[in-house]
Nucleic acid binder design. Structure first.
Length: 554
RNA sequence: GGUCCCAUGGAGAAGUGGCUUAACUCAUUGCCCUCUCAAGGCAACAUUCAGGGGUUCGAAUCCCCUUGGGAUCACCA
């Protein structure tokens, strides 16, 4: 008779280590009381999803605020879906959002004593545990093909029973070791399944850091733990890795709640203490039919973190927004603290929303504007330049033509208590301030200028000509008074009141004059403060633009 | 369909039996300021907490039902 041990040895002859060896190799971490060891465990299947950024931000923050450890583990056991190079890209993206792991996979190398941190490189570790399970009769090889599985499922559906590989449907569960051995020798492809002792009709009590306590049916599925490609499945790898990497709290998406019974049983069977779990709400979006659904990378631009990077959103804007989604009291905190950072904010699991909330682009814009608004001219220029160099040649060209000039433009109404908040992202800068540059200006004035139709060409021309005398060397108030004086001389009312009292007596008001000038200099009706626009352009250029516009009128 | 979770305004939410004629933030709208815009200031926006029953002197808050929404049921993670 063939024993479990003999079978296990036959399947994994090369595995000599035991679980005890692994326990020694990965000792408990020596950390202060209350320190959390968290991890972000992405699959290298593409670029960073906004939901993943959300998750990793939380893991990072929780570890930081408890003086714990935040590490990254690459879950690359699905070789079919793997996209070459995306692991490195993931790390770069995280770094752009100031999420830097203390330990683990770093893209091109790894640090830490609990590695390897790439699952495909941990095959030997999984095998030690699987061999142990095999020896104990807690796992067994399964030879069922996809067709067999489909057949089982069909049968179950027809009988309205739960689908899956369990109980009497687990055909390979009670094969004799002789038969198993023979089929393996025969070269039959196989997977290894965990032998569940659970009963679906029994409930287990589970605890979750954000959901609290709830009941859920026991697992009774003999899940695959070792695939035919000799790599573990998620469930198994999670249990083994988080145990030996000594994770204290597993922070992951709410979609994992349903498989919690599997993980609970696996931990219990192995005699290991399960980590705490914190299942996060999933970020949602309303689709065309008015239904909520998960933010989808295929359908929603805002689902890809790269979108925000390429558009030039400040990383802080998105992070602040995501933090408000995590703990809604963060919003008040960050506003009270003038967006100065979150180091003193305590993220609490029990303050998380349980249901997924809708992604609100408007609020991302708001926080981004706020953030960009409080940067000084130097900082915003540096950031804009760094962004433009990578993603926006047009903007990069504008900045590098004359960085000081660009800085002054950025500085319009910036150095004050409540600065302008014109930009939520760098990519819109050229559209907003392009008129400051002659070549863009000359493109803009090819379109008809939006002058008020009540003014004849002659009036516009004479008014503009008179305004050439406007003194720019004054402070703002005196400058405006000067403009008023000239305007009055030209037949405009000094203010609205006077104009309204006797509309026939005037061509218009100073406001109209300011508008004429604004349109002349910027080719638009709306622009930043006229005084600063003129100061930055300079007297000479202003008068030149006046001449240009007058010539266009004819 | 089974299992689990959730349900306060356009959005994020506070609220854990009386302090709530429901806070705060974004969005929207209006007014003020004003050379336009941005910013700023002020105001409006749920007579009511999905609906219905109950418990209670008293419920958004506790219980039940209904309805609606979400998650999940792979050799994917």
């Amino acid at each position: 008779m063939i024993t479990n041990k003999q079978l296990a040895d036959y399947i994994f002859p090369e595995v000599k280590e035991t679980i005890e060896d692994l326990e020694k190799r990965y000792p408990n971490r020596n950390l202060p009381e209350g320190a959390e060891v968290t991890r972000f465990a992405p699959s290298p299947t593409g670029f960073l999803h906004t939901g993943s950024l959300f998750m990793s931000m939380i893991c990072h923050k929780i570890a930081k605020q408890t003086n714990g450890v935040f590490y990254i583990r690459l879950e690359d056991t699905d070789t079919k879906r793997e996209i070459e190079g995306s692991g490195l890209e993931l790390l770069k993206q995280l770094k752009a959002f100031n999420i830097v792991p203390d330990e683990g996979y770093l893209g091109d190398h790894e640090i830490g004593n609990y590695g390897p941190y790439i699952q495909s490189k941990r095959a030997d570790i999984y095998r030690v545990v699987i061999k142990h399970l095999l020896e104990q009769g807690l796992a067994y090889p399964c030879f069922c093909s996809t067709d067999d599985l489909a057949e089982i499922r069909k049968l179950q559906e027809s009988k309205k029973e739960n689908p899956g590989y369990y109980g009497k449907y687990a055909r390979c569960r009670d094969l004799s070791n002789e038969e198993r051995m023979e089929r393996i020798k025969n070269g039959d492809p196989f997977v290894i399944r965990f032998r569940s002792s659970g009963d679906y009709h029994n409930k287990i009590q589970v605890h979750d850091m954000v959901h609290g306590d709830f009941e859920i049916a026991q697992n009774d599925q003999d899940i695959v733990i070792y695939k035919s490609d000799k790599l573990p499945t998620y469930h198994f790898a999670h249990v083994v890795d988080d145990h030996f990497m000594r994770t204290t709290t597993v922070i992951r998406g709410g979609e994992w709640i349903a498989s919690l019974p599997i993980h609970v049983e696996l931990f219990a069977t192995l005699g290991w203490k399960a980590p705490n779990y914190a299942h996060m709400p999933v970020i949602m979006k309303v689709d065309e039919n008015g239904n909520k659904r998960k933010l989808s990378k295929r359908k929603d631009t805002e689902a890809a973190v790269s979108y925000f990077v390429e558009e030039g959103y400040p990383a802080e804007g998105l992070i602040i927004y995501l933090m408000t989604l995590a703990n809604s009291n963060f919003e008040q905190y960050i506003l009270d603290n003038k967006l100065e950072g979150m180091d003193n904010f305590k993220l609490a699991f029990d303050k998380f929303a349980i249901d997924g909330s809708l992604f609100d682009m408007g609020k991302v814009n708001f926080f981004s504007k706020e953030f960009l608004g409080k940067l000084n001219k130097h900082e915003i220029t540096l950031r804009a330049k760094a962004y433009a160099e990578k993603y926006n040649p047009k903007l990069y060209d504008l900045i590098t033509r004359d960085e000081k000039y660009f800085e002054e433009i950025m500085n319009i109404e910036r150095e004050k208590e409540n600065p302008r908040k014109d930009y939520e992202k760098f990519s819109i800068i050229p559209d907003v301030i392009g008129f400051f540059y002659d070549d863009i200006y000359s493109e803009l004035i090819k379109e008809p200028l939006p002058f008020n139709e009540k003014f004849s060409k002659e009036v516009i021309a004479s008014t503009l000509t008179a305004m050439k005398e406007l003194n720019l060397d004054l402070d703002e108030q005196s400058w405006f008074n000067n403009m008023k004086e000239i305007a009055v001389k030209e037949g405009y009312a000094a203010n609205n009141k006077e104009f309204k009292a006797n509309p026939e007596a005037y061509k218009g008001t100073v406001g109209d004059v300011a508008e004429l000038l604004r349109i002349t200099f910027t080719a638009r009706k709306n622009a930043p403060n006229l005084y600063y626009v003129m100061k930055i352009l300079g007297k000479e250029k202003c008068n030149k633009r006046i001449d240009t516009v007058i010539s266009l009128l004819k």
